[in-house]
Amino acid sequence: MDKVAIVIDSASCLPQEIKNDYQIEVIPLNIHSQGKTHQDGINITPQQIYSLQAADETVTTSAPSPGTIVESFHRLAEKTREILRLTVASTYSATFSSIQSAIDIAKRELPKLRIELIDCCTGSAAQALIALTAARASALGKDLNEIISKVKQAIPKVKISLVLDTLKYLQKSGRAPKIGAWATSLLKLKPVVADRMGHAHLLGMVRSRTQGIDRLVKAMKQKVGRKKINIIVVHSDLEDEAEELEHRLLGEFNCHEIYVTEVSSVVATHIGPGAIGIAFCPEE
């Protein structure tokens, strides 16, 4: 029997190693700037996003069209009869709704293909960890219902927090409180934010990135102690700092697997450069 295909969107910031090892299909979200539309990870990079932001150009994002999603279903139907589609939180993006429309079309065009859709209720590297859970189960030959069960168990356990350079870009996308953006700009503070089931929460502000990272690590220790965990360190244009954090986490936690990845272009649009964060979940 063919393995269940795991499909996610580019908001997941999926590390290349995970994508390659488990053949996870990644569908790009759209990025719009200067009158052009780009596909995340296809013809625009995070570095180009940072340059546009530095030039104060307007950059926006949108969900892939139902037609684009249906095309991906047709490609996968040549290799499998079952697909699990994991999406960025529906509170962050219209991707979930676009996929629902695509599934309605696919039911008519591909009646033998079973497609299940799950809202991950998070994004970025936390979504990637959920995809890793699903992909591992698929690789072990678990059926679609078993994989869905594992994913639903994982969703509330996966956590992600970040230290941003500014709330400016989250504010532009409507995902940050105005008072927070004002304070970080005026007082030169760095916000510490966390995702809680599809909603960005401001945990506090710190005077330096180092203080923010210390806060993230302390909070992790309180949650997991010495439990075995999987980690993704995610960053926007902070490769050296991310690698340093990886080494620190390896020394301070019981890491089963750990990855370092730069944010995707669509996430870079919403958080800007100079951010670093940690996504983690217990190893089952």
Rank of each mutant, 00 (worst) to 15 (best):
A125I: 12
L52V: 09
A94W: 02
V163K: 01
R248C: 07
I155D: 12
D56Y: 14
L186G: 03
I27S: 01
V4E: 04
A55S: 10
K218M: 12
H38T: 06
E109C: 05
Q171T: 00
P273S: 12
T95A: 05
V7M: 10
Q53C: 10
V88Q: 10
I44P: 02
L140P: 01
V163F: 02
N145E: 04
Y259L: 00
L249E: 01
D21T: 06
I105M: 13
A125P: 06
K157D: 07
N254V: 11
R108V: 03
G277H: 00
K218W: 10
A183D: 06
P66K: 11
T210S: 15
C255F: 10
K150N: 14
P46D: 13
I229E: 03
S173T: 15
G141T: 01
Q53M: 14
S265I: 07
D9R: 03
A54N: 15
D214L: 06
A268R: 09
L167H: 11
R248G: 04
S93M: 04
H32P: 00
E284R: 09
D195W: 01
V4T: 11
I18L: 15
A183S: 15
P64W: 08
T45G: 02
V158C: 08
F280S: 06
L144I: 14
P64F: 06
H256T: 05
P64R: 07
E78V: 12
G67M: 03
T61I: 11
D240K: 05
V88C: 09
S72N: 14
G123T: 08
L117W: 00
Q34E: 15
E82V: 00
Y169S: 12
S173C: 13
K223R: 11
S173R: 09
V224S: 08
K3R: 14
R75W: 05
A125S: 14
T37N: 09
E244A: 08
S93W: 00
N145Y: 00
I103C: 05
P177Q: 14
Q23L: 11
N145A: 03
L29N: 15
K3P: 06
P66C: 12
K19E: 02
G141L: 01
T91C: 01
P177L: 11
N254D: 06
V158P: 03
T60D: 08
G141Y: 01
Y92R: 02
Q34P: 00
E17A: 09
V263H: 07
E257G: 03
M197D: 08
H32Q: 09
I231M: 09
L14A: 00
L86F: 07
I99K: 02
A219T: 13
G251W: 02
V263F: 07
Y259Q: 07
T45V: 01
H32I: 14
